[in-house]
Design a binder for these strands. Structure first.
Length: 807
RNA sequence: GCCCGGGUGGCGAAACCGGUAGACGCGAGGGACUUAAAAUCCCUCGGGCUUAGGCCCAUGCGGGUUCGAGUCCCGCCCCGGGUACCA
């Protein structure tokens, strides 16, 4: 903070003293339960949700404060519109962030987290959020993760959870699994000399791909989902729907290779085939002569980590298998290769390569001297394609799919990019997956009455070089009787993904006091789905998609009445500092506490909301804070004038009345659209007009105080009390405007000649065109531009402009 | 590469559906009050001309549509974010 901004206001008892006022009202809200809606009896429930934070050791920075305040402004606004607003808060405290930090500082995460949460709670209270703290939750609390485990069991019972072998990043130096973000261009972040490898582990998955179509369809259903376009687009891309065909290429009488393509029209140009190195047919197809080369290539491919395998600009490599397949369209025999640019997880793990029409295939063909045959000509019509020649690409696609289906060589299919959700984490800091492995009974779910499976409080939570999950080292926990036969069995040692914790937390909030159920049916019916959800766009895909998937499954098994959890979602913008996103590595993170101490929470909230549009964010600068503070001081004094001299009610100038109604309209519409900066600007304009007129009319001032309440809640409460009221300002109703008073009696009209504004005239509102034209044409300035010319045309926009076209 | 955003004064920004570009705020300059400073209040502030009435230019660049374009269309450039060998 710079010196010039640290000037405290004079110690006048009449002046605005934020610290005392804020403490007073925060205490009173707690006492009176102001922020605690009646969850069972609310008549107009409105669930206003903000993405819960991960409680880092650093606390909330101003970027977080911006997001939380923006959500809170909206909740308070809805409250003033007469809704029963439920605004809960909690902590997403499991996961690799917490665990890595704990490892770094050498303190157990279970010891670190409570202190971080306490700090977050203090900050969130200090900023004046309308949170209902009765319903606070933490995902690390056994009373919460008991139900995360229960949720896993519901998915398991519904057949939506299954186990399969899947690759993970493995650091041979740490001897542990790494998350993707811990792999830096192929190397371990902690061991820059150690290349990360792929390891295959047996892991739990959820069948989200079964819901690809449903997830996609709802995105286009405005009645179910009012979401930011950017978020909808991101999800659509992630789902990655592609229409195409699956085609069988025969190798011999009993073996075929199935490929997926989005371009069946180019099949006549398929001159070779490529399988992913791990494709199950590779071993079988490889000729004796090629075996050694193929095996070497497969081993090399497996040793790459998961990330660098997928980097597109790598040089293409591959090996010929020695096998040939028959192109069903041309009848020609084409060679079968393996190459790591073909991925096993997408399509069928095998492609027909059409080098003439696919850049990657072309690069590969050129490197290995493979044939290139054109299937579509310059004019966009099929060539060298037998009876299909001459068709457009679209006609060719349809005709070839029809031919494939009648000949039995293939069929039209829809393919999604989305993969099933791997929820296994070979880590310590998460909810243990509630499964027990018995030699006789296989994987057995933990009976629901035995939940939660408590995460044991072990000191050796660090992954060590034994290569075994930390939980497996804890023998009295690891060995447990089989729920079926009672014989000694072993617990699943993986914990679940943090995204599972956050995929259902909104369901828990209204029901936190129930210990015998995850979420109460009655409460859920009243409060869910969430009315407005606000959060960062970094969660546009995974968190929001997983939450939607979980809601769909719960809906399907009859546990909730909705299949889309968030009726309205808006992504907040980012606060930048000195032109760059705030981050620890850049060293430009601004901690809000000192600003709040100096200026007060209300001024700080006002400044954050004023510095840019909420959905876009803005630049945080110290100098800007003084503006909103000066504004609050002016309102403070105006309230004082109103209390002392309550007689000016009758003589509000008409222009001020108009401004008053315009302000109500603009503030209402701006807040609804999350353009908080415009709402504040409108109120500033009103105050400027009132001050010019020396007006402190009670009705106007009261409306202003109410409209300020979402932004400056403590300040507004205090003003409301000074105005003689004994109840909370949040018991009041948002003011309404009179549409007739939004427009002034006379309006200024622009007079244009050939589209250029030459002068302005003032006429009565809604004046007719002839009347306006008569005055406008008599105007001396206008005359200079039309003198001696013919008027060709006249365009009149009532109350705005008159354009005279001359020539 | 692809998909989203965005580019407007010294700075943060505003502008509904195409209709007077720059509201509101910061900052700067000048003035009032004061012994002085802070606070507060008043005036000025996109650029260039100017006979002082105005005129010309101006919303990243180049075209276009229109009586009229920051806003719509086409082609580029730059910045931010996401995503990436997805066949």
């Amino acid at each position: 903070m710079t010196e010039q901004n640290s000037n405290a206001p004079p110690p006048d008892t009449e002046s605005y003293q934020p610290a005392a006022i804020e403490a007073k009202w925060q205490a009173r809200w707690d006492e009176c339960g102001t922020n605690e809606p009646d969850l069972d009896g609310a008549e107009r429930p409105f669930y206003n949700l903000m993405m819960f934070p991960y409680p880092s050791a650093e606390g909330l920075h101003v970027g977080n404060m911006f997001a939380f305040t923006g959500s809170d402004v909206y909740g308070r606004f809805k409250r003033l519109q007469g809704y029963d607003v439920f605004e809960p808060m909690g902590f997403d405290a499991f996961g690799i962030h917490s665990e890595n930090f704990a490892i770094k500082v050498g303190t157990h995460p279970a010891r670190l987290i409570p202190a971080n949460i306490a700090n977050f709670r203090r900050q969130l209270k200090r900023i004046g959020g309308m949170f209902d703290w009765r319903h606070e939750l933490s995902t690390t609390d056994p009373s919460y993760y008991k139900w995360t485990q229960w949720l896993f069991l519901q998915l398991y019972k519904a057949g939506k959870a299954y186990k399969k072998y899947a690759a993970v990043n493995w650091c041979p130096a740490c001897k542990t699994v790494l998350a993707n973000e811990q792999v830096i261009s192929g190397f371990c972040e902690r061991h820059p000399d150690t290349r990360v490898e792929q390891r295959t582990l047996d892991q739990w998955f959820f069948r989200i791909t079964e819901y690809a179509e449903h997830l996609l369809a709802d995105l286009g259903d405005a009645s179910k989902m009012d979401w930011s376009d950017t978020t909808v687009t991101a999800q659509r891309n992630w789902l990655g729907r592609s229409e195409g065909a699956e085609i069988e290429f025969a190798v011999d009488h009993n073996r075929t290779i199935r490929v997926f393509t989005t371009r069946p029209d180019t099949i006549h140009g398929a001159t070779f085939m490529v399988l992913a190195p791990e494709h199950p047919l590779v071993g079988d197809l490889t000729s004796v002569a090629q075996r050694e080369a193929v095996d070497a290539y497969r081993t090399a491919a497996a040793s790459h980590d998961l990330i660098s395998r997928k980097i597109g600009d790598r040089e293409k490599t591959g090996v010929f298998t020695g096998a040939f397949a028959r192109n069903p369209a041309t009848g020609r025999t084409i060679p079968v290769w393996i190459a790591d640019y073909v991925l096993m997880e997408y399509g069928t793990g095998a492609i027909m390569a059409v080098p003439a029409h696919d850049e990657r295939d072309l690069e590969f063909a050129q490197r290995y001297g493979l044939q290139v045959t054109t299937a579509v000509g310059e004019d966009g019509r099929l060539v060298e394609s037998g009876s299909f020649s001459g068709m457009t690409v679209e006609e060719g696609k349809a005709a070839i799919v029809r031919w494939l289906e009648t000949s039995g060589a293939g069929k039209g299919v829809v393919q999604y990019r989305l993969h099933d959700w791997c929820i296994s984490r070979q880590r310590y800091w998460g909810p243990p997956i509630p499964i027990i492995y018995c030699d006789d009974h296989g994987a057995v779910p933990v009976p629901e009455q035995d939940l939660p499976v408590i995460l044991p409080d072990i000191e050796d939570f660090r992954p060590d070089d034994s290569g075994i999950s930390p939980l497996a080292r804890h023998e009295e926990w690891y060995y447990t009787p089989c729920p079926v036969c009672g014989k000694r069995a072993r617990r699943e040692t993986d914990v679940s993904d943090t995204f599972l914790d956050s995929a259902w937390y909104y369901l828990r909030y209204p029901s936190t006091e129930f210990t015998d159920r995850a979420f109460d049916a009655e409460r859920t019916r009243r409060w869910c789905p969430v009315a407005t959800y606000i959060g960062g766009n970094e969660h546009a895909v995974l968190h929001l998609l997983y939450s939607r998937f979980i809601a769909m499954v719960l809906h399907e098994i009859g546990l909730v009445h909705f299949d889309e959890p968030f009726a309205k979602f808006r992504a907040h913008g980012l606060i930048v500092k000195d032109g760059a996103k705030m981050s620890k590595s850049r060293g430009n993170v601004v901690i809000p506490d000192a600003y709040i101490a100096r200026w007060g929470a209300d001024t700080f909230r006002m400044y954050l909301m004023f510095l840019g549009p909420f959905q876009e964010g803005g630049d945080f600068r110290d100098e800007g804070i003084s503006g909103p503070r000066r504004f609050l001081d002016k309102v403070w004094n105006m309230v004082g004038d109103c209390v002392r001299n309550d007689t000016c009610g009758g003589d509000v100038r008409h222009a001020a009345v108009v401004k008053w109604h315009q302000t109500i309209k603009r503030a209402t519409e701006s807040i609804e659209g999350l353009r908080y900066n415009s709402a504040i600007a409108a109120m500033m304009e009103l105050v400027n007009v009132l001050r010019e007129d020396n007006c402190c009319d009670r009705q106007v001032v009261q409306d202003l105080v109410i409209m300020l309440a979402p932004f400056a809640p403590h300040f507004s409460e205090e003003c409301w009390e000074r105005l003689g009221h004994t109840t909370s300002v949040f018991e009041e109703l948002w003011p309404e405007w009179d549409e007739n008073l939004v427009v002034e009696g006379s309006v200024e009209i622009a007079v244009q000649v050939n589209g250029k504004t030459r002068s302005t005239i003032t006429v009565a509102r809604d004046s007719g065109e002839e009347h306006v034209a008569a005055i406008a044409l008599a105007d001396a300035t206008t005359q200079r531009f039309i003198a001696g010319k013919t008027i060709r045309k006249r365009i009149y926009v009532p109350n705005r402009l008159l354009n005279v076209v001359v020539g």
